[in-house]
Nucleic acid binder design. Structure first.
Lengths: 109, 109
DNA sequence: CCCGCACATCGACGCCTGTCGATACCTTGG
DNA sequence: CCAAGGTATCGACAGGCGTCGATGTGCGGG
C-alpha cells in the first residue's frame, strides 16, 4: 500500500484548510484505517492482555488467510500504528497510541 | 461508494475489541476520509467564512473537474460530514462537527 | 541434522473507486 | 420563452487494493 509512517502533519481539519501535500499525507493515514480487517487487528492487539498479542493468535479471529493477515499487519506496522517484536519464531505486536493520537488530533473539533 | 450516514457504532478502538459489523461500519466511515480531495473539500468548507461554502467556489481550489468534485461532495454529504442546502442554482455546504466527532471518539486513547 | 511451525513473499485474480468528457436537469435573468 | 450557467448523472477507463494458494525463509525442538 506504500504507507509512510504516520506523523503529525497539520492542524485539525476544521481549524485550517489543508494544502495538497497535507491532504495526501492525511488521506494515506486514514486509508490504513479504512479496512475492517485492519481495524479489528488493531483493536484486538490494543485490547490483548499485557497490551501485546502474538501474531499466531490473530489469524483465526478475523477469519482471513494467514498471508492476508500478515499483509495487513505489515501495513499497520509500516504506518506506525503497531510495533512488532520478533521472539523466536513468533511475532508480537503492541499498539502505538501516539500514532492513533495523530489521527484523532486531525479530527479535533 | 455506498456509504451510510456516519453514526456512533462502538467504543474507542483501544478500549474494546471490535466485532465484525462494527469494524465494517467504522472502516466505511474512515474510507470517506481516505481521499485527499475529500479531505481538502471538507477543510475548505469548514474554514470558509460564515461556516459555509458555495459549490461553485470549490472546483477550482482542488484542481479536479466539476463532475469529480460533485461526486466527492455527494459522498461527504451522504456520510453526514457535510450538509447541503440548495439556494437557487447554487449548492451551499456546511460541515457537520457531530459526524467528525464520531470518528474522533473512535480513536480516543 | 532434520522436521515442523510461524511468518513473509510472490503471482494472479476480481472488485472497487477516482477520474474524465459528454450530456441532461434546473433555476435565474433577460 | 429562451439563453446561460451551476450541478448531477452516465458511461468508460485505468489503477489500486484485498484476497488467496503456493512457495520461500528462519527459528526451535527432537
Amino acid at each position: 500500500m506504500d504507507t509512510p509512517t504516520i506523523t503529525a502533519c497539520c492542524d485539525p481539519l476544521v481549524e485550517a484548510a489543508l494544502d495538497e501535500d497535507e491532504a495526501v499525507q492525511l488521506a494515506a493515514a486514514f486509508k490504513v484505517l479504512a479496512d475492517p480487517v485492519r481495524l479489528r487487528l488493531l483493536s484486538l492487539v490494543a485490547n490483548a492482555e499485557g497490551g501485546e498479542a502474538c501474531g499466531c493468535d490473530l489469524t483465526e479471529p478475523v477469519g482471513r488467510s494467514q498471508p492476508t493477515v500478515s499483509h495487513h499487519l505489515s501495513i499497520l506496522t509500516e504506518a506506525g500504528l503497531l510495533e512488532r517484536e520478533q521472539r523466536g519464531r513468533w511475532a508480537w505486536y503492541r499498539a502505538r497510541p501516539e500514532a492513533i493520537a495523530v489521527l484523532r488530533d486531525a479530527l479535533e473539533v
